[in-house]
Design a protein around this nucleic acid. Structure first.
Lengths: 196, 196
DNA sequence: GAAAGATTGGACCCGCAAGTCCAGAATCAG
DNA sequence: CTGATTCTGGACTTGCGGGTCCAATCTTTC
């Protein structure tokens, strides 16, 4: 790592990623040009290509990686403590609040839809994200549900509920779907907790 | 309607929409250029702008409308007959088969992500789609669940389950999520049917 | 059958945004 | 200190793709 990169350089690079992420949240990846990023960061074209040798795509991948981290970060610390029914409810509430605030903006959405075809790396980022996300959920369902198969299925349907709820939130501006989907998806955990 | 448009003209227009939809399914909206469409349909630039006066966006909206219809079409006739537990299972199976075949291609996804900001009309198309979809589901849940609130919530969470499952299918190439999400989302219908 | 309007062909324009290049300033290593 | 390397500025090139235009045909209508 750090293949010949000064602390200053690293800072600049990070500055670019963060600023680009912000721009993309607002306008979407497709309408965010290198010139926008350049202007927002007070940098020059050459710096953009210095830190992201493969150009635009390279930069978008970096932003995607950054945003993927944020997704999990927004669910902490709840995501790692899903051992009781109460903690599931707390997590649900955190998710609702977070995506409610985000509203229509989807940090990863536009990014992936632009990178998806050209960059297999981007796909990896997302599937890794989902994998660790699912694993965390599974740790929770596993402790509350004695049947292994049920725990796996439940973790998956919870994950799907979040995704679906968010999609519908973005399209309709209503959180009702996310609320309903989460409620019904974590329902098995209530009786699971009671049975322990 | 048909504001001065010959049958021939209408046919050409339709040919363009269908061909464009195909191209977009394969390459995504962003990478589909007017020239691609022109080539695929053996038409000329002027025809494209003749039938879609506002240009590219106009055409994409037409394609989106077309694709939105297909979404519901793929679920027929099951979607309109969700009155028994067996019919829900049949519907579930149809949905799984359809999206399994589609695989990574998402007809509306790239379209919306490109049109979303610029064209409010596109947003309308999607929210209308979801509205009629939800209404159909609600007719089903309403007949099987006596509690109105439960029926509404269930319809919403089923819809979210489909969306989430499809998102995950596209990202991970695995139908497991869609399967799990659907199974658990329509679960209340089983006991509902038994209780009748 | 002739005017009016719809349909088609394709050359052309033009702006935008990605990417290149080189020279100069800052920083580091020894 | 000094040579090497990294960092920065910004002008320039380039190609792609949306959009314009006009003239040539085909259709409809009366």
């Amino acid at each position: 790592m750090n293949r010949g990169m000064t602390a200053k350089g690293l800072a600049t690079r990070q500055r670019i990623v963060v600023a680009a992420a912000l721009l993309i949240r607002e306008k979407g990846a497709a309408e965010t040009t290198l010139d926008d990023v350049r202007a927002a960061t007070s940098t020059s074209k050459s710096q953009l290509f210095h830190y992201f040798p493969d150009g635009r795509i390279d930069m978008l991948v970096a932003v995607a990686r950054h945003e993927a981290d944020q997704v999990l970060e927004a669910q902490r610390p709840y995501l790692d403590e899903l051992t009781t029914w109460e903690s599931w409810q707390a997590w649900r509430k955190a998710v609702l609040r977070h995506y409610g605030e985000l509203g229509r903006r989807c940090p990863l959405g536009s990014l992936i839809s632009e990178l998806g075809k050209s960059s297999p790396e981007a796909r990896t980022i997302v599937s890794d994200l989902f994998a660790t996300w699912e694993a965390a959920l599974l740790r929770g369902t596993g402790t509350l549900l004695s049947d292994r198969g049920a725990a796996v299925g439940c973790a998956r349907s919870v994950l799907a509920a979040v995704q679906g709820g968010v999609v519908l939130l973005q399209m309709t501006d209503r959180v009702d779907y996310l609320e309903a989907a989460l409620t019904s998806a974590i329902e098995p955990m209530r009786s699971g907790a009671a049975a322990r």
